[in-house]
């Protein structure tokens, strides 16, 4: 990270930490909370796509496992929230490994297709076992993190700080270097003596861990686990767009991408049905015009 980027990050962190005291309403605090959640999902995805070079079309598979794992532990067994969240996270990691180990043997677009099918499979399973999962209506959980928007925000914000720090540290460590080499030129990475499958599976586990953990938190924020909010392909697409929009292979860019997507969605809410269309069109324009993403754009401006 350059010195300028570090200063910018510190300013953003302080501003976000102070935001609830700046006299903004609960509504804005709620939007900021969702931005934090989406940012973690996008960062976790960027580790796989940007560094390991694997396109995971199923981020919502991992998010969904975390959400439903935690939600069912609470709704069915009334376990304490920390235990529920641990169970959700574990479910995502286990599911992620079961998916990644065979899928990473496949070449090219097939890895992506397998991850896509995994999402559909999870979605169908939730609908079929509606008795325990709540099916299409969703699963209402009895517990909440907190009734205060500010407390909820700080949990989400803390989660984003944790995920960002861990992922960024790993991405810029020798592990990250080897992971990038495995993504860009797998044959050369192996010729330099690295067992690249090991690194890719480790990256998948990390990605699953943070996606699942955050998915579990999201359940106790929204008070419900639902296919529409956590599992649907459209949720995964939002995550992918946030990561690409923010800037591939940056981790940090995901925060910008999430802020843009979620923020624009809320700002355009008065436009009704049209808002989704406008946000998608804007995202498309950014991806085509600045393939390095928003962060890439800011950094190249500064360099120039």
């Amino acid at each position: 990270m350059t010195r300028n980027t570090l200063i910018a990050v510190i300013i953003v962190v302080i501003a976000l930490a102070a935001a609830p005291w700046a006299g903004i309403g609960d509504y804005i605090i709620g939007v900021l909370t969702m931005i934090c959640f989406t940012a973690v999902f996008a960062m976790s995805w960027d580790l796989l796509f940007g560094y390991a070079g694997e396109v995971n079309f199923g981020p919502s598979f991992l998010i969904g496992l975390g959400a439903y794992g935690a939600g069912m532990a609470d709704a069915l067994y009334a376990l304490p929230i920390p235990a529920c969240i641990a169970i959700g996270t574990l479910a995502a990691v286990i599911g992620g490994v079961i998916l990644a180990v065979p899928a990473l043997r496949l070449r090219g677009p097939y890895f992506g297709l397998v991850t896509l099918v995994a999402v559909l499979l999870l979605q169908q399973a939730i609908v079929v076992f509606a008795g325990t999962t709540g099916g299409e209506i969703g699963l209402t959980v009895p517990d909440f993190i907190s009734g205060s928007a500010t407390v909820n925000f700080y949990w989400a914000f803390g989660l984003m700080l944790l995920a960002g720090t861990v992922l960024l540290t790993i991405a810029s460590s020798p592990f990250g270097l080897i992971l990038q080499a495995s993504g860009q030129d797998p044959i050369e990475a192996q010729s330099l003596g690295y067992n690249i499958v090991k690194y890719k599976i480790a990256a998948f586990i990390l990605s699953a861990f943070f996606s699942g953990l955050t998915g579990a938190f999201l359940v106790f924020y929204l008070g419900t686990a639902s296919v529409g909010a956590m599992v649907d392909i459209a949720v995964g697409i939002q995550v992918i767009i946030a990561a690409v929009l923010g800037g591939r292979r940056t981790i940090l860019g995901s925060v910008l991408g999430a802020a843009f997507l979620t923020g624009a969605g809320e700002l355009l809410r008065p436009a009704g049905e049209l808002s989704g269309f406008i946000v998608a069109a804007l995202a498309l324009a950014v991806i085509i015009l600045i393939p390095n993403g928003l962060l890439g754009l800011l950094q190249s401006r500064r360099a120039a």
């Binding site: 540290t169 790993i170 460590s173 020798p174 592990f175 270097l177 080897i178 990038q180 080499a181 860009q184 330099l192 003596g193 690295y194 067992n195 090991k198 690194y199 480790a202 292979r249």
Partner: peptide
């Protein structure tokens, strides 16, 4: 690796094959 310097690229030839090398 285009975002890494020449030295970091050379370093890639020297690291241990271990997941737990953070430095």
């Amino acid at each position: 690796l285009h975002r890494q310097t020449v030295l970091q690229n050379i370093l890639l030839g020297l690291l241990p094959d271990s997941l737990f090398t953070l430095r």
